[in-house]
Amino acid sequence: MNTILLSVIILGGIGFLGVLILYFASKKFEVYEDSRIIQIQNILPAANCGACGFPGCSGFAAATVKSSSLDGLHCPVGGNAVMTRIAETLGQNVSQVMQQIAVVRCNGSCENRRRINKYDGEKTCFIASGLYGGETPCSFGCLGYGDCTKVCSFDAIRMNDETRLPEIDEEKCTACGKCIKACPKLLIELRKQGPKSRRIYVSCVNKDKPAVAMKACKVSCISCKKCEKVCSFEAIIIENNLAYIDDNKCRLCRKCVSECPNYAIKELNFPIKKEKVENI
């Protein structure tokens, strides 16, 4: 009997002591956390991609709570819907940001751009670009080792084995901008998604003189200025031997697309039928 009593007392005592220590420790080391951070974290997409510029979604949540306004804070993955909900939670206003999508500004597939060298180093764009301009005569274009595909958290960008160019899955792309940072050739650009996802852009970044660019790639921009002339909205600027379409001014009239002699201007998601009529 005595033994049982003793063990109960000892064990109970130890238990009680533990409770006391834990209680005081939790009081002493308590970290105050704004409950809204958790709330906002629940709204966020939990992709932890870092596209907002903060380490993960919790970092972004903390930043939104801390700052007095939501200017400059944007979750590209969640888009306007999520930002509106965050603004409601915090009782603040948020301006609508135009939904964007990534485009790859190079069309130098194996067919369009001949390979003149064979690269035998480590096959990542980061390493290859440090020493060489690539395997083709165009030192501006895509290297084809897919650094952009490796950083994408959403599986939205993939290498096409035939063309050796990356392709963007519009359904999955969240415009987080990671691939843009990964590309050493600065080929990828975020552009306005456009109505019905229709977009027009110059699919080339070659800044060589026209004759050199022409030789390097079948679909290079040769800065012939035809597109600039045909554009009624002054949306096309030519600088450093390269045309660029300003997506804020472009009205998607598609005149430049058919005007380009080197097929360097690309249109996406336009109905094909109409084009056939034009061709006839």
């Binding site: 060489y132 301009g133 690539g134 005569p137 030192s139 060589d208 003189k209 050199v212």
Partner: peptide, 10 residues
């Protein structure tokens, strides 16, 4: 003018 250097850059 530009010449292609040993690394393929102009």
């Amino acid at each position: 003018d530009k010449i292609i250097d040993s690394g393929g850059y102009g």
